[in-house]
Every structure is written in structure tokens, then in C-alpha cells.
Design a protein around this nucleic acid. Structure first.
Lengths: 342, 342
DNA sequence: TTGTAAGCGTTATCAT
DNA sequence: ATGATAACGCTTACAA
């Protein structure tokens, strides 16, 4: 049996409105009456009906996590799961719910967009790693749907949360320089993704900061996949770098395979530093020196930013929140040490 | 601007009900009128309001994915992400939405349970790997909330989808026997989880089927974690098995570390077969021979079963659906080959 | 075939 | 401080 406000009211001997007031913690209800009402609620295990509430308030307390699904590795890589976990827990503790939506390339995106974003299901959305040429973000802006992007979005008034990819990459490369390397190559991410671009920028900055010329033949574009990393490494071998900054751990796994096939030892013959610090980074041999990003915290932060937008009911456009979270270098075996190289 | 049925009706020059009929594809609307209505809908980009609809129909078209979060590795292991992906895509193609809920141990589960499961947010739920001593499943049964468990649930009238853990494990061990091994140990999963129990049963069945005595000293309980696998392997070494069936890839990674430390080579000194076939299984050296389960398809299947329960509006209890999906053995390097052993 | 009107379970605006 | 009552936007008998 599922009870309604009306029935609870009857039991408590008050009107519907009074019960509503009690539940929503509004003032102007005598403590005595409050007690009676709570008692009735407890007695029947009353739970407000979400749809009715949302129809009356036009708030659902649900936010969406939208995955444009440009990235194929989205679910095998732990990035997205961790992001999701952070976001879900944050939602939970704010009494919000998280709805998950994949925008599958094949499907009718128009239809999905409308069904999900324009049907009042959601109070707002978190968009994970939207690519720049995706119509999703422009559409959200046009429809004035509150949203936060995970991953930097340089154009327009887009609130976002991102890891400090530039400085992370810079730290990684500077570490290699510190170890004595000068001929440092990089396997980049896809350069139509901001994260790919930023990690490449960090690489450049590190070299330029130390007066080491950037050689284009030492820069090879990858796609964040293991196979891509392997292929990129193979293309890189003829240039014989002494170290490589690989823009993701997954690609580093591929690079490692290519190196092994070619008979190069890591780190003795070539040093590797990568990015992400996913579990495989410490499980593999040699363990990867890599840049860690606070993925779970980013998910929670995205929720926090979104909720701040939702609370702020002043019709005003709130100032754009662009949040960049720090990354850290985790030193393991794949880069060798200063000692072993000298 | 967001339009309502009323306004669309006005534009099309018909009544609210007619527009509703057209949208819901009900019969008895003149084709001519239908056309006018669709035109009006298109013109203003009308999208029905989900909450209003659900208030009127008491169906939300949202299903929940509930994670009891007993398993700590739930988000770093790709199992859950893949399950989620399969479920989400299936939802998408059936025009359902997926809501994600973590039942964090710390939080007030009572409160969360009520807020999520008894507020009419959901039409039904998928419960991922509930442990037997969790109150979630009993509560769902009590409240008559339609749900499907991912992972076998032997008690009561519980619909479930599971991988064929027993036969998968049996195949793995039989493969080792075929390769000539007789002294085969196993590192089990947690034995309070059905999956852990089932994989152990498969191990036993394989040995018994070939008349090989099961020795208790060759059975060590793990916890599906890498460290657990490492510890278990260390405890197993004194018994010097010639092969080990490890109940998960993640534990196999730990076991591999323990073996390396002890100076054992895989597969020359000891053969390994594990379970899951997550990406790390093929990335690691040696690549793991392992049992693959169709995780993504299981997610999709769970949705299919749940939707079948929801469609079936006959007040009758529908027959319990217990679906076991096939597993397959993926042969790689960690078990060695018949040739190399002979 | 189409329209009218009564819900669905809340919140919110008025009176009182 | 409390109670009527009108929304909220839709579906669904029932009437026409």
C-alpha cells in the first residue's frame, strides 16, 4: 500500500497543506501538530511521490550524466567509472539522483536529446568529455539547460571541471629532463580533443622552458588506445628518442609492447612516462611512472558546480566557473632513476 | 519557451485529448487530423513533460541500477562499467532511462532505499551482485518492486541473469587437466559470494569428473583483489601445485607477482588460468588464459528481463526468469601448451 | 472520430 | 497557524 498526503493528513487530523508544510520543513506549524504529523508519516511509512512533486515544483532533483561516447575506451578505461562514482556519491549525499545517458553515434541523437534534455526529466546535466565539434554543448547553451562540462571547453560561457593536463604533462617531461634526457619524444592523444592538445602543450612548455628545441619528428599522434600507442611507438623508433612522454597509460601499454618486440628495454634503453595512473600502470612490468589526476574528485566537483547553478535561482547568468584540479607525478620504474642512468 | 499539450492543441485546432492520442499512437484519429497535429508538434518542438505523464500513468520509463557496493573493486574492475554500458544501451533503445544508485555502506540505507525505491522514481530496478546477507533483495520482494538481479540468487522468487560460472570454471580446470596437470590448486573468490562459490564448484566438478582427488590444501580463499591474490598465492606455494585456477584476472595479477618474487616462471614452472578476461589479462606478461563472460550482454539481458516484467501487467506473478549466459575459455600464454610441457 | 472533464499527488496562494 | 483551492501537464473514461 502506498499512501498519499491526503491519507496521512486524515490520520494526523490535519489538512493536506499542513502535512506538506511539515515535510518541507516550513515554519508556522505548531510543534505539537508537527509531532502528530511526523507520527502519522512514520506509522504508514509515507514517501512523497516524486513525479507529483516535480510537477508542482518543476524541479526533479535528478541530474543527468551525458556521455557523447566519442571515446571508444570510455568504459574499459577506469576514467569514466571513477568519474561516475565520484558524481554518484556526491549526488547521493545531496539527495539528488543521477541519470545516465549514452549518446550512441548510431542512434537518432535529435530524438534522444529532446527526450532526455527537454522533457523535464532533469534539472541539469554533466557532460563528460564532449568533443569540440559535437553539437551537444551548443544545443545545451541554446536551450539554456544548466550543465557542467568535465573537460575544458574553451568556447563560450561553459562551466567546466578539468584536470590540470598542461601542468601534469609539463611535470612529467621536466622529470625526464631532470633525469638527463634531451631527446624526448611524445605520443599525443587525439589532437581534436582538448585533453590531447593540453598534454601536448605541457610537453612543449617543458622543453621550451629548458631551452630544448621541439622537434616535430619526435611528436606522433595517438588515439588514447593501446593499439594506437603501439603503432605510434613503432613510428617513433627510427627517430631513436631516449625517452617518451606517452599521453595515456593505455597507450603506454601498447608502446611497451612495441618496444619489447623491437628489443628495447625499459627503462634501460628508453624511459617512459605516461598519464592517468589507472590500475594497470602499477600492475604492469615495468610499473609506469605516470601523472595522476583526481578523477573521482572531479566527478564530485562537477556535481557541486552544477548544484550551485541550480540553487542560484536568480535569473541572472552566474559567472562562469572554470575549475582546474591539480595533477601529481607518481614515480615508478618506467622512467629509470637518475642514478641508474648516470 | 516550453509548450504544453494545450497550446499544441490550440495551434492544431483540436482538443488536448486528440493531441494526446496522436502522440501515443492511439487509433481513432483521422489521418488528416493526425497530420495537422504532427505539424503543430514539429512547429513548436513540443516535448511531453515526463513528470506530468508519469503522474497520470504511474509509469516513469526509468529503471534503476542499484549497486549495493559490497565489492570494493566495483569501479576499477571493468565488470561494472561494462554491465552498465550494456544496460544503458538497452535502455536507450527501448526508450527507457537508467538511473544509477550506489548504496554506500556508510549512508542511511533505510532513507536511501525509501527515497529511491518508494518514491515512484523508478518502474523497476536492476540489482548488481547483491550479497546474500544484504537486506536489499528481501526488501524489494516485500515491497513488490519489479527487479532483476545480476548474479545468481538462489533463494526465493528472484529473476536473475548470471554468467555460467560453474561451467566456465570447469572448462578452465579441464583445460589444465588436458595439458597434463594433476596437482591443480585454486584461489577462490570470497566464498560468501555466489560467484565465488560457483567457480569453486566448477573446479571441484572438473577434478571429480576426471577422477582426480580434491585436496583441501590446494584450495585457498581470496577476495577478488590483487593483494588478496598475491597473499593467497604465497600461502599456496609450499603445496607446490603445478597449476592454479585463479577465480579472477585481478587476483591472477597478484598471484603473478607473488610467483615472480618467489622465482617461479609462468608457465614453465607453474601454469595459471583465471576468470573474467578484462583488458589487463591480455596486456600483462604472460598474457592470461582466462574465462570470458559476456558482461555487456548480461547488462542488456537484465534490462530485457526487467522490461518483460514491466510490460506484463497481468497482476499475476510471472514465472521466475533465471538466465545463465555462456562463458568461453580464451587460451593465451599463462597456461603453457601441451607441447611445451611434454 | 472528437471533445469534455475528472483525476494523478503534490505545492503554493489565498483566506481565515 | 491552518485550511480551501487552484494550479502543474498529462491520460483516460465517458459523452457526444
Amino acid at each position: 500500500m502506498t499512501y498519499t498526503l491526503e491519507q496521512v493528513a486524515k490520520i494526523a487530523g490535519v489538512s493536506r497543506s499542513t502535512v506538506s508544510r511539515v515535510i518541507n520543513q516550513q515554519p508556522h506549524v505548531r510543534p505539537q501538530v508537527q509531532e502528530r504529523v511526523w507520527e502519522a508519516i512514520r506509522q504508514v511509512g509515507y514517501q512523497p511521490h516524486a513525479a507529483a512533486r516535480s510537477l508542482a515544483t518543476s524541479r526533479t532533483h535528478v541530474i543527468g550524466m551525458i556521455i557523447p561516447e566519442a571515446v571508444p575506451t570510455l568504459f574499459t578505461d577506469p576514467f569514466f567509472p571513477l568519474l561516475l562514482r565520484g558524481a554518484t556519491e556526491a549526488c547521493n549525499s545531496h539527495r539528488y539522483q543521477l541519470m545516465l545517458s549514452l549518446f550512441i553515434p548510431g542512434a537518432d541523437r535529435q530524438e534522444i536529446y529532446r527526450r532526455i534534455l527537454r522533457s523535464g526529466y532533469l534539472d541539469g546535466a554533466i557532460v563528460a568529455s564532449a568533443s569540440l565539434d559535437d553539437s551537444l554543448v551548443p544545443n545545451l547553451l541554446r536551450d539554456r539547460i544548466p550543465f557542467v562540462s568535465v573537460g575544458r571547453y574553451p568556447n563560450g560561457r561553459v562551466h567546466y571541471v578539468d584536470a590540470d593536463n598542461i601542468n601534469g604533462a609539463r611535470m612529467a617531461v621536466e622529470h625526464l629532463i631532470r633525469l638527463g634526457h634531451r631527446r624526448i619524444a611524445t605520443i599525443t592523444g587525439p589532437l581534436d580533443m582538448i585533453a590531447g592538445q593540453d598534454r601536448l602543450s605541457g610537453y612543449r612548455q617543458a622543453l621550451e622552458g629548458r631551452g630544448i628545441p621541439v622537434e616535430e619528428e619526435l611528436i606522433v599522434e595517438g588515439d588514447f588506445s593501446e593499439n594506437g600507442g603501439m603503432a605510434a611507438m613503432q613510428r617513433l623508433l627510427p627517430a631513436s628518442p631516449s625517452a617518451v612522454f606517452v599521453a595515456s597509460d593505455t597507450m603506454a601499454v601498447g608502446a611497451l609492447k612495441a618496444l619489447r618486440q623491437a628489443g628495447w628495454r625499459v627503462p634501460q634503453d628508453i624511459a617512459l612516462v605516461s598519464f592517468d595512473d589507472i590500475p594497470i600502470a602499477s600492475a604492469i612490468e615495468p610499473a609506469l611512472t605516470t601523472v595522476r589526476q583526481p578523477i573521482e574528485r572531479m566527478g564530485a566537483m562537477a556535481v557541486a558546480v552544477l548544484l550551485s547553478l541550480l540553487e542560484d535561482s536568480s535569473g541572472e547568468e552566474s559567472p562562469v566557473q572554470r575549475i582546474v584540479m591539480p595533477t601529481e607525478l607518481v614515480i615508478r620504474a618506467s622512467c629509470g632513476s637518475a642514478l641508474s642512468r648516470s
